[in-house]
Design a binder for these strands. Structure first.
Lengths: 209, 209
DNA sequence: AAAAAAAGTTTCCTATAGGAAACTTTTATT
DNA sequence: AATAAAAGTTTCCTATAGGAAACTTTTTTT
């Protein structure tokens, strides 16, 4: 990897002291969490020890932050106490804000068909591109093609620029996508995008074979 | 995406109709996950070592399941590689089966933050994609990397989602791009995007090799 | 094709996690 | 309040994680 690559994708680290870095790494309180879980379940160290197969002393030390448990110990804790592993270091009330989502579909497939959206091809000056980008305006509530799967070779990525759409696919549940949402799928799997808002939707589409 | 990949990557998709489905869902393991994350981000052990503050050898041993990392090490991995901790042991692809269909919902991506850019990888659940899509927040008027060209294999497409940027390239005149504008170029040519508005800019980027 | 450089693995050693048991503190019982 | 029992902590030792450097493998350059 060249220096330039460093700059683009993985520049030298700016650990923590970067105020623009929104992702704050929480101070590690696996001990506090563990103790909370254990006491909430009214378990003594001895009982917890039996369930997890870990020594009483080990549990005590973990709870008092005297040691940092190994992953294998964390797994024993989770399975023994019947909790999900992340609960050991995640505050229970904490809700994750995911304004924008990223939906990925996987699939298998076959042949092909077409649609009557308004397509605007991008980067038309370049020939033999690896990727084919275009914008599509999807007319509101036009279900003309409902039931006709679109299929073609290659993989496809889409991002919703305006409006709200439903991504229907051959093998998966329909997914509702709003502005900022994206999807990536094997285009040989039957797929179809319809607008579910009152306004037209605008989609960026990119295909690669 | 080869047929083989299909079988490997979407075992739950085959739903019994694929006799070639030899893979049984493997259990989550930190080593495999870590290696996937590192290689997906095109980092060497040395680079990952610098970011996490962990020894190259330690990373190697973790990836090869020779040791079970302590929680404190896991935290260093997460913060150094800018991922959420559970990503280290959660298989990216989470499927839920509803009837005969199978939906894959995406997670939060793997953002990389620096003074200048914040990257959010998209469609991280799928490995061996032809395209690598990600969103980047380009911080306003931060010229930290001015003068250092970015270069890498493949072709690149970008679309401005928010703000206004300048696309600087090695062989062409600088181009000012506003919301909705896009560009397509050979990424081996030196290139660089800087924000020219007072607000941050948001860019959708897609790379294909 | 050989040499050099880079990436990855293994070795060897030190630091620390984890278990058994001794010790201390808390709670229950009289 | 004294005593006993239970719960929790600390000690001490062994097993294993983590780091520095040697070594091997892979990739790049000449």
């Amino acid at each position: 990897m060249s220096e330039q690559d460093q700059v683009d994708k993985y520049p030298s680290m700016t650990l923590g002291d970067n105020e623009n870095n929104k992702r704050v790494v929480e101070k590690a309180s696996i001990g506090v969490q563990l103790k909370a879980i254990r006491t909430e379940n009214k378990l003594t160290l001895e009982e917890a020890s039996k369930r997890t197969g870990l020594a009483r002393s080990t549990l005590s030390k973990i709870e008092n932050e005297q040691i940092s448990p190994t992953f294998s110990v964390m797994q024993k804790l989770a399975s023994g106490l019947n909790i999900e592993l992340p609960q050991l270091f995640t505050k229970p009330k904490e809700t994750k804000v995911t304004g924008r989502r990223d939906v990925t579909l996987g699939g298998q497939g076959r042949p092909h068909a077409t649609l009557t959206y308004e397509h605007e091809l991008l980067a038309t000056q370049l020939r033999n591109k690896k990727m084919m980008p275009y914008k599509s305006r999807v007319h509101a509530r036009n279900f003309e093609h409902f039931g006709e799967w679109v299929r073609h070779e290659g993989e496809e990525f889409l991002l919703v620029l305006e409006g709200e759409v439903q991504l229907l696919t051959e093998f998966y549940e329909p997914a509702t996508l709003v502005v900022g949402d994206s999807a990536y799928y094997d285009a040989t799997m039957g797929h179809l995008v319809i607008s579910t808002s009152k306004e037209d939707a605008l989609i960026l589409w990119i295909t690669a074979e």
